[in-house]
Nucleic acid binder design. Structure first.
Lengths: 199, 199
DNA sequence: GTGGATCGTTCTCGATTCGTTCTCCTTCGG
DNA sequence: CCGAAGGAGAACGAATCGAGAACGATCCAC
């Protein structure tokens, strides 16, 4: 059942209050914020929100109005597979997920790949590392990107885009930068985070 | 069960007190800080905090109110400060925490440091990286450890322990391994995980 | 040790606040 | 006219909070 206008306002006010204070508000305080003079009226709206499952039921407890905790799995991202220079992304037989702390990702959609090979070793990206990739089709010069080359091979490289040409730069003394035509390279994402285990 | 307004205030006051004094407070002292006149009233609040598992039970002992060791949140670890070659760990002004996915830590106690400097750059550990350290006094040869040298400087290096000598090996062409007497080097932890952000 | 002061614990009692329920009212649109 | 949405206000019971007294246990100085 959709919310009425006033119910929506109460919900917004609750969210605002939760952002401002650690403790849940009192009905009286909420009344003042909403310009009401009767707790009884507000209570009806709160009951409606409880019926909608948006607010935890407050069984007589003081300051018991708590928003329901939503999105428990906010910290997991899809682990798509392995990425190596010169081969397409090796997809996992079954889609897996991996926990990623919020600090290592952005607010935009992200996914995780496991690095194979040492072509970016001198940038501190080693074989076996997990890289967090923000899904994006454009990049700034100097960023490290997941690039699809000629629609057949995928690689993780630093990118420099100039008029008429795109250069992909490995971070390994044994490998040389390669120059492509702009239409040969499609950016699939940009490196935003990285994780490694030693055990 | 969520805390009451007054219970939250008592908890805050306890944390404040723990930051100010080494000894736990007396009920009377807490009463004065909170503007109460009755120990009995305060005691009820403390009992509630014990029931919540936030405070260790104080069975008649004087000054027995001790905060329970934190980390109810399984995925956060203490962020102790910065580590650089040649200086003690630069502690944060206030203890902070950081989210760490379970894959990057071990089941034993761990903490997090932020790396300063490039002495381990060729091992893929760059300036600004966060390293997860397992609290441990011994290490296997070849592991990367947090080592306290002559009780005055702390450093992150690969370790080789042989009879009668300990060698700490940086991962940087510009730096050379240094050999110490075993009693000069105390291991404070072993590197088990690492995180980096690019944004 | 030992005694006294301090401290934690338990209890009762009162006061206030707060959630809850109820009735009655107004407004607005079909 | 009627029903839905919204509000005012009163009344009730429960939750919260505090004061104070009394009792035992603990701690400390001697």
């Amino acid at each position: 059942m959709p919310l009425t206008l006033r119910q929506q306002q109460v919900l917004d006010c609750l969210r605002q209050y939760a952002a401002d204070f650690a403790q849940a508000p009192t009905l009286d305080v909420l009344c003042r914020r909403l310009g009401l003079r009767s707790r009884g009226s507000l209570h009806k709206h709160v009951q409606a929100l409880i019926a909608e499952g948006l607010v935890e039921p407050l069984n007589g407890r003081h300051r018991g109005i708590h928003l329901v905790t939503q999105s428990t799995d906010e910290n997991t991202l899809p682990l798509l597979g392995k990425i190596a220079a010169g081969r397409p992304i090796e997809a996992l037989p079954q889609p897996d997920t991996i926990e990623v702390p919020p600090r290592l990702r952005t607010s935009r959609p992200c996914y995780v790949l496991q690095v194979t090979g040492d072509s970016m070793a001198e940038a501190g990206i080693l074989d076996g590392d997990f890289v967090v990739i923000e899904q994006r089709e454009t990049a700034r010069n100097g960023e490290i990107v997941v690039a699809l080359i000629r629609a057949e091979e995928t690689t993780l490289k630093r990118i420099i885009q100039e008029p008429g040409r795109v250069t992909l730069i490995p971070a390994n003394r044994g490998l040389l930068p390669v120059v492509y035509a702009p239409e040969e390279v499609a950016i699939q994402g940009v490196l935003v985070g990285q994780m490694r285990t030693y055990h």
